[in-house]
Design a protein around this nucleic acid. Structure first.
Lengths: 217, 217
DNA sequence: CATCATAGAGAACACATGTTCTCTTGTCAA
DNA sequence: TTGACAAGAGAACATGTGTTCTCTATGATG
């Protein structure tokens, strides 16, 4: 059981580490939380150590730290090349300087969205879709899928499962649903499910580029 | 000019950091290089500092580090408290482990969007708006603004400037534009302009929560 | 009311550790 | 040889810092 205070402790240590490149002293943690002496903070630190959320090297300076050595970046797999394997280094186009833990999963990857097929889910052209790897489709989820036989490009679609079919729905009426049933089902390969979105450019010229005001009036 | 010895120093510090999660003491670096006293190592450390390859915080323990050690982050200013100053540590709720450079500016901050007033710009409830600080309004841009006299909360709005007015438009017809003219103009305080969006949760139950399929059919 | 638990303040201790000084050794060039 | 220079050993100092103890204030509970 971690109290609010204890979550603050972890968050402070984590952000101190990120900002400074080294860990805080217990007194610096105190100052960050508004405490004036380290005595009571030690109880929190020890409690968090018992919880398995913090580590220390007893007696050593500036060694209180979160247990998870956060992997610092999300690989950007811009487009999926024809030659698999999919997650090899070859397809690793770039790294987003973003801690994957932000999205609740240490092993996410990113795909840049092309077109406005998911505009109804408020995912714009150019957005970076954060994907958690997962190969079983889940009904109602938005997933990145590969369709064998078509051009080898990952697309983002809402998955709808019925007894014997997989339907892939765009969030845009211009794109009809893709339906796979029977043997066809095997053509659908789920890469993972959408767990986040990063938009690095906000179009200044067309603030509402796809769903214009006309939709509302 | 860095000698072989000095490269060893950097490599040792870097790998120590990776293995342990915190930095080495100068004596631990000595031991790692087979030196028996820190005196001469200091010359190497200082030389590397002059080269711009290492950093330290003088006097502080375990703070010798490679210059690129501090992973940058974006401060999350969840809501703006009544008591300013705005960017003080007090309002610093948390840090997003995201390199601000991803959004083209080293000093961005984040605000969590409440409500669906910007849904037309595909910004959902709960999204994290990445803001570049800027106090002059720009026509047509989406900006985070503070309106004096109302509840002290930052809101995201599209700014439209005319000769003598500032209009703040929501991207949702349910919210009428706010118009400020004449002396009223001074009530509008621009915090910065929107340069990005991060969505950390994708609602599985309602994939199109606000602009439903009804809009398209 | 009494009792207990929790959070924090404040003081104190021990020592790890950054930093500086001096001295020795080895190397290279004039 | 002599001098200059770099690398290291060893000692010493000042203090930052982890850790522990005691005492107080507050709130919940019986």
């Amino acid at each position: 059981m971690v109290s609010q205070r204890q979550e603050d402790v972890i968050e402070f240590i984590r952000s101190f580490h990120r900002r400074q490149g080294f860990g805080p002293t217990v007194r610096e943690v105190c100052a960050g939380l508004g405490l004036k002496s380290p005595g009571s903070l030690m109880k929190h630190l020890c409690a968090l150590e018992d919880e398995g959320l913090l580590e220390r090297s007893p007696g050593k300076k500036r060694t209180w730290r979160p247990v998870d050595a956060a992997s610092p970046s999300i690989p950007l797999l811009g487009r999926i090349a024809a030659g698999l394997p999919l997650f090899a280094e070859e397809n690793h186009e770039a790294s987003l300087p973003v801690d994957p833990g932000l999205f609740g999963c240490p092993s996410t990857f990113a795909l840049q969205v092309r077109g406005d097929s998911m505009i109804g889910a408020h995912i714009q052209d150019g957005d970076l879709a954060i994907i958690r790897p997962q190969d079983v489709p889940e009904n109602g989820r938005i997933a990145a899928v590969l369709i064998e036989g078509l051009e080898p490009e990952a697309t983002l679609k809402e998955v709808r499962l019925t007894a014997d079919r997989i339907e892939l729905h765009a969030a845009n009426p211009q794109y009809p649903p893709l339906v796979f049933e029977g043997a066809e089902r095997a053509r659908v390969r789920v890469l993972g499910r959408l767990v986040g979105v990063i938009r690095t450019r906000v179009h200044p010229d067309k603030p509402f580029p796809c769903v214009g005001r006309a939709f509302f009036s």
